[in-house]
Structure formats: C-alpha cells, structure tokens
Amino acid sequence: MSDDQNAVIKRIFCEVLGVDESEVDDSTSYNSFRPWDSLKHLQLVSMYEDEFDIEFEMDDIIAMENFGLVKEIVTGYINGG
C-alpha cells in the first residue's frame, strides 16, 4: 500500500468520525472508541466506496473492527484484492 493511499484512508476516517488524526492509530477499535458507532461506520463504508470506486462484500464491512483492519481491507479492494 502506498503512503498516499494510507493518508487518504486516514483523512476520510477522521473526517467522518469528526476526530483529530492524532487520536487514531492502527489499534483504534470500534468497541472502545466512542466516536465510532454503527452509523458512522456505514458512512465510512459509503465514503470509501465513493472515493475509490469500490464495493465491499458484507463480511468485509463487518470485519473492519479496528483502524488497522480498515486500512488493510480498503487497500485490498483498491489493489483489486
């Protein structure tokens, strides 16, 4: 994955959740990070799909449980995985 892609993934993540980039790292997890709720998650999914012109499978939407996994899964789709 390229640094540029990672930067875009993080920017979108922080914009949707309304948080500062310094508050987010790979271990930031859905279960313990209060700004990340199921509604925000749905918006995140739509934003990534629009931005990168991809469409997630349902199991992958469920699997994005921390920011590290979000990056990994989104990148997999961008690279045709």
Partner: peptide, 12 residues
C-alpha cells in the same frame, strides 16, 4: 429469550 447484537454492521 433475546440475542443481543451490538456489532459494527447490521448485516451481521
């Protein structure tokens, strides 16, 4: 009984 689903995505 009740199954509590608090998962990240409703599809679950």
């Amino acid at each position: 009984s009740m199954v509590l689903n608090n998962k990240i995505f409703l599809g679950s």
